[in-house]
Simulated assay, not measured.
Amino acid sequence: MEENSLHVAIIQADLVWENPNQNRENFTKKIEEITQDVDLIVLPEMFTSGFTMTPEHIAETEEGETIIWMKKMAFQKNAAIVGSVAIKDNSDYYNRLFFVHTNGLIDTYDKKHTFTLAGEDKVYKRGNSKVIVNYKGFKIQPLICYDLRFPVWSRIAEEDYDVLIYVANWPKIRVHAWNTLLQARAIENMSYCIGVNRVGLDANNYEYSGHSAVYDALGKKLSTIQPNFEGVEVIVLNKKHIDDVRSKLRFLDDKDSFSLE
């Protein structure tokens, strides 16, 4: 693979409700069927369970089977893997994103904006800090679903990054907002923006249509994955694109200063 590039596989999939074993098996098949060399594999939010508000049925620890599985897949494919999982940490539940490196090291992010409309805030403890992952010459900020609606949380301020990632269970009924905001986040931060969403029906009869996408720093859509269907697509990100756009246009030099409290 060329220098200063990142080959990213986005996996848009249906999820089996509260069945981690079956979901891991399904994703194993999809990952093993990727024939191209890739650097990073992106899975949806809560990819082992769907967006469940009863984590006591399926939540794991960081030493559980899903994290072991992610490490195994990352090693086998020589590619980092990112996705979120319902985790029990002491007596609290978290919607926790894991960025698993090929060497087994892990970066984690706990979803800050828990989805009050579904009562996620009553079940899962919210996070309060962002993480910037340094990987193969790229700085990556991973976020989760509802975080997409809050631009201040992703806005480039003191910390810089090249790629935003949103993993999601975003319902079809509000997919116009998903499409619009993903593109907006790319444009306003002059970064790549990746959104990976599920498809299918969940146990609450909510429908998900995917619309997983990758946008470049000017908001141009790079991906062609089809809505409503399972699919895997590999997109190449180039560091030079970020550097060239930012140095030529310099819009970030005029950004507003602010602090998060």
Rank of each mutant, 00 (worst) to 15 (best):
W153S: 14
D147N: 08
T180N: 14
D160E: 12
Q183T: 08
A79H: 01
M70D: 01
I187L: 04
F75E: 06
V232P: 10
V133I: 15
L43S: 01
P20W: 03
C193F: 05
F27T: 00
N21V: 14
Y161D: 08
M190S: 09
F229E: 15
V245T: 09
L164K: 05
M190K: 12
N179Q: 15
Y166N: 05
A184Y: 13
V8E: 02
N19W: 04
S223T: 10
W17T: 12
M53C: 11
Y192K: 05
D89G: 08
R185K: 10
K112F: 09
H176F: 14
R155A: 14
E230R: 13
D202M: 14
R198L: 11
I235M: 11
V131I: 14
L249F: 12
I187Y: 06
Q141G: 12
I156G: 02
A157W: 07
L148G: 01
R24A: 06
A74K: 02
H7M: 08
S257C: 01
G119P: 03
L148Q: 03
M190T: 05
Q226N: 12
P20K: 08
T180Y: 14
L222M: 15
A80C: 04
A74F: 00
E32C: 02
S212V: 10
M190N: 02
K122T: 09
M73K: 02
E65N: 11
T35Q: 13
I31Y: 02
V85F: 03
T180C: 08
L164D: 08
E18H: 06
N19Y: 07
T102V: 07
I156H: 11
D160C: 02
T28C: 01
V16C: 08
E63T: 14
T66A: 05
I140K: 07
E120C: 09
E3H: 11
K88D: 00
I34R: 02
L143M: 15
I106M: 10
Y93Q: 07
M70E: 06
S259T: 04
